[in-house]
């Protein structure tokens, strides 16, 4: 499970970074979203991975699921949700104002893939 989890975080992060470096607003938004997914998983894993752990500590249980990372992830999700909405609106506004989706407002530079 650890390998799967870390591979997932790594893949999401690298795709996110690649998309952000594309310097176009739509990939930028997707890249930022993927990066926030990666960080959410990362935060979640920082409380240690475990299956079937009880949420409430009791004498009979061997361990418990750390509630703090879950609270952190929840906060992070809400914030990244709001930020994504904001970036989408800003990208639309930038497209309307600058007439191109290149982040510097430059016209197309042969990136017509």
């Amino acid at each position: 499970m650890e390998v799967l989890m870390s591979a997932m975080i790594g893949v999401l992060t690298s795709i996110g970074i690649y998309l952000i470096l594309r310097a176009r607003t739509f990939p930028l938004v997707i890249g930022l979203t993927l990066l926030s997914y990666a960080v959410n998983l990362f935060l979640f894993a920082s409380g240690r991975l475990g299956v079937g752990q009880p949420a409430i500590v009791s004498d009979s249980s061997m361990g418990y699921a750390d509630p703090l990372p879950q609270a952190l992830v929840l906060t992070a999700i809400v914030i990244s949700f709001a930020m994504t909405a904001f970036v989408i609106m800003l990208s639309l506004k930038a497209y309307a104002e600058l007439g191109t989706d290149q982040v510097d407002g430059r016209q197309d530079e042969g990136d017509a893939s």
Binding site: A38, M83, F86, L90, A94, L98, V103
Partner: peptide
């Protein structure tokens, strides 16, 4: 302003991550 804002926002979102 929009162009500068887009850079500022994108950079800071990466920073937040």
């Amino acid at each position: 302003r929009v162009r500068a804002g887009l850079h500022f926002v994108a950079l800071n979102l990466v920073g937040s991550t």
